[in-house]
Nucleic acid binder design. Structure first.
Lengths: 331, 331
DNA sequence: CTGAAAGCGCTTACAG
DNA sequence: CTGAAAGCGCTTACAG
C-alpha cells in the first residue's frame, strides 16, 4: 500500500505539502497541488485513517451499544444511528450487550480502547451507574438512548407518560376497568416509566389497580405466556383488556389469550407498546404505541454532534412523542 | 490518559517490558510483572488500540456493509455478525448502503481506510463487480453475505432452489396451477435465484408460466401493491395462489389481495419468503420460507476468520437451508 | 509558498 | 531476563 511518503517523493514535494493538499489546510500553488493529486492517482494512495486518528486525537468514529439487537425497535434505532452517522462522515462501531451488564461493560471498554469520539448507549437491564461514571472519567461524550437515567447526561427517549395516559383513557372511555398490565423487567427505565404512568393514569380515573392485574418481571416470551395464562385463569374477575409494554411481552400475552380460547377484541381488548410490523395487514389488528425508533437513533447522533462541538453545552434531555395507532383490538 | 511510558516509569521498567507483560509475549520475572500490573492499576492505563493496530498491521476489527438495514432479515444478519465478532474479540464497523451502489462504494472505502481486517458485504441491488475487484486489489479478505455472485470469493447464502422447489410442490399438489410470482428486483441475486428456481420448478411439473402471472421489478411496498392489484384485475384467469419473494413484496401483495376483497386462504392461497415475525399469532397465518438470517451472519464471520487464518485456503461457498413454516394460508 | 523534523502510543527485532 | 531504539503513517508547530 502506498503511503504519504510515496506520494511525496513521486510528486517531488514534502509530506507536509501532501498532507496540506489532501486536507486543504494551507495554501499550495495550483501547479504543485496538481502534481500531488496526480501522484495520488498513480500510486492509488489512500490515507490511513488509523495514523491520522492517532495524530489528531480524533477518530471520526462513534460507538453504539444496544441492549437487545434482536428487538425490532432496537434494530430501527441502530438503523437511525447508522444513517445519521454516515451523513456526518462518522464510522459506526456497533456492539450488543444482550441485556448483560458484563458484556455491556466489556463492549464499552473495547470502544473506549478504540478511542471513539463518543458513545451512544441503550443500557442493559441490570446496568450499574458505575459504568457511566467510568465513561465520564474518560471525559468521553455520552448519549443515553431509550433507556434513560436520572443523571446529568445528554439523553433521548420517548414520552412514555403521555402515551400511557392516552392509552388508558382510550380503554377506560370504552368501559374497561379491569386492565391487565404486562410490564416486564422494571429495572429497564422505559418499562418502569410505563408501569408508573399506568398507575398514575388509573389513579387519576379513580380505578384501583390490583395485584392480580399486574404481570411484571418476565423477560422472555415463554415466561410471559406462563405468567399471563396463570393470571387469566386465577383472577377472580378476569380482565377485559390487556396492555403489553413491549413487543416481546405482547407476543407472550397474545399467545396466552389465544391459548385460553379468548378472542381479540370480542372477549378481550388488547393494546401494546412497540408492537409488530405491518400490524394493519393482520388480525387481530392491534392498537399500538409506535415509538419513533429510527428517529430516536438519529436524534442521539445529533445530540452527540452537539456535545462534540460544544463540550460545555448544558445537558439536554429529549423526549420524542410516540404515535398511537388505534385499531380494532380495542374497539 | 496514561500511556505505556507512564506505566513503565512508575514500574521502573522499560516500555518493552510493559508491552511484553500486557501481551504475554515473552517471559518476565514474576516480581517485575507484579510491579507492572500494579502500575497499570494505579495509573488506570488502557492500551491504545489505535497505536497498537498501527504497529501490528491488524486492527482486530471487521467491516459489515448491508444493503437494507430496514429489512428485518438484514437486522438479524447484523445481529448474527455482531454476536460472532464479539465472540472472536473483533470490533464491528457497520454501514448501510440502502441499495445505493454509490453509498456502498463510499462505505467500503471508509472501511478500507480504517484498515479493517476483513469485509462482509451484502451487496446493493445495482452493485458493480468493480467494487469487489477493488477490494481484491487491496488483498482484503472478503465474504459475500446473502447476495452472492458467480465469482471466486468466499460467500454464504441460502439455498433458494430447494426452498422454492418445496414451495411449488406444496402448492401444485394442492391443485394450484396459476401461481402469481411476485419476484422484485431481479438484479438482486437472491431474488434472481428464486425467480429462476420458480421457472425450473414449474417447468418440471409441466406448468406454463405466463407473463400475466409474473410481477417483477418493484422495489417498494407501494409499487408492489399497484402492480399486483393491476395483475389481479387484468389477468384473464385470476391466480389461485400468490408467492412473494421477500417481506416487502409480501406486504404489498397482501395489501392488494385485501384491497381486492379476496380472502386468504379461502379465495387466494399465499406464501412468502422471509416473511413476518410472530406469524403464528396472526391471521392470515402465512406459509413462510424462513431464512436462517442470524446464522447467516454468524457463518459469514466464521468464513472470514478462516480466511484470515489461512489466506491460501480454497474458496468456500456456503448454502444454508431455510426452514419452511407451512401454515393455513396455503391449505 | 514550502520543508525538515518532532511526535502521537504502541510493538518488536536487536543486543547484551 | 531486560532495555534502547527504530518505526508504523500520519499531522502540525516551527522556521525560512
Amino acid at each position: 500500500m502506498a503511503t504519504i511518503v510515496d506520494v511525496a517523493s513521486l510528486a517531488g514535494v514534502s509530506t507536509s505539502t501532501v498532507s496540506h493538499v489532501l486536507n486543504d489546510t494551507r495554501h499550495v500553488e495550483p501547479e504543485t497541488k496538481a502534481r500531488v493529486m496526480s501522484a495520488v492517482q498513480t500510486t492509488g494512495y489512500r490515507r490511513d485513517a488509523l495514523a491520522r486518528s492517532m495524530r489528531r486525537a480524533r477518530t471520526d468514529s462513534i460507538g453504539l451499544v444496544v441492549s437487545d439487537a434482536g428487538e425490532p425497535a432496537f434494530a430501527d434505532m441502530v438503523h437511525g444511528v447508522e444513517e445519521a452517522a454516515a451523513q456526518h462522515g462518522l464510522s459506526l462501531l456497533l456492539a450488543n450487550s444482550a441485556e448483560d451488564p458484563a458484556r455491556e461493560r466489556s463492549a464499552v471498554e473495547a470502544l473506549l480502547d478504540r478511542r471513539v469520539d463518543g458513545l451512544i448507549i441503550a443500557r442493559a437491564a441490570g446496568s450499574a451507574d458505575g459504568l457511566l461514571e467510568r465513561i465520564r472519567e474518560e471525559k468521553k461524550p455520552l448519549i443515553l438512548l431509550d433507556r434513560l437515567a436520572d443523571l446529568d447526561v445528554d439523553q433521548v427517549g420517548v414520552n412514555n407518560h403521555s402515551a400511557m395516559a392516552a392509552l388508558v383513557e382510550h380503554l377506560t372511555v370504552r368501559g374497561h376497568q379491569r386492565i391487565l398490565l404486562v410490564s416486564g423487567d422494571l429495572r429497564v427505565s422505559s418499562l418502569r416509566e410505563r408501569y408508573d404512568s399506568f398507575h398514575v393514569a388509573m389513579l387519576a380515573r379513580g380505578i384501583k389497580v390490583t395485584a392480580g392485574l399486574l404481570c411484571e418481571g418476565t423477560v422472555t416470551t415463554a415466561a410471559t405466556f406462563d405468567s399471563v395464562r396463570t393470571l387469566l385463569r386465577s383472577s377472580p374477575e378476569r380482565p377485559t383488556a390487556i396492555l403489553a409494554c413491549s413487543t416481546l411481552l405482547a407476543a407472550g400475552a397474545l399467545r396466552a389469550v389465544q391459548h385460553e380460547g379468548l378472542r381479540v377484541p370480542e372477549t378481550m381488548a388488547f393494546a401494546t407498546f412497540d408492537g409488530f410490523t405491518y400490524s394493519d395487514l393482520f388480525e387481530p389488528q392491534i392498537t399500538t404505541v409506535r415509538q419513533p425508533a429510527f428517529h430516536l437513533g438519529e436524534s442521539a447522533v445529533r445530540l452527540l454532534m452537539r456535545r462534540l462541538e460544544t463540550p460545555s453545552a448544558p445537558t439536554k434531555i429529549l423526549r420524542l412523542d410516540s404515535e398511537i395507532e388505534f385499531r380494532r383490538s380495542t374497539e
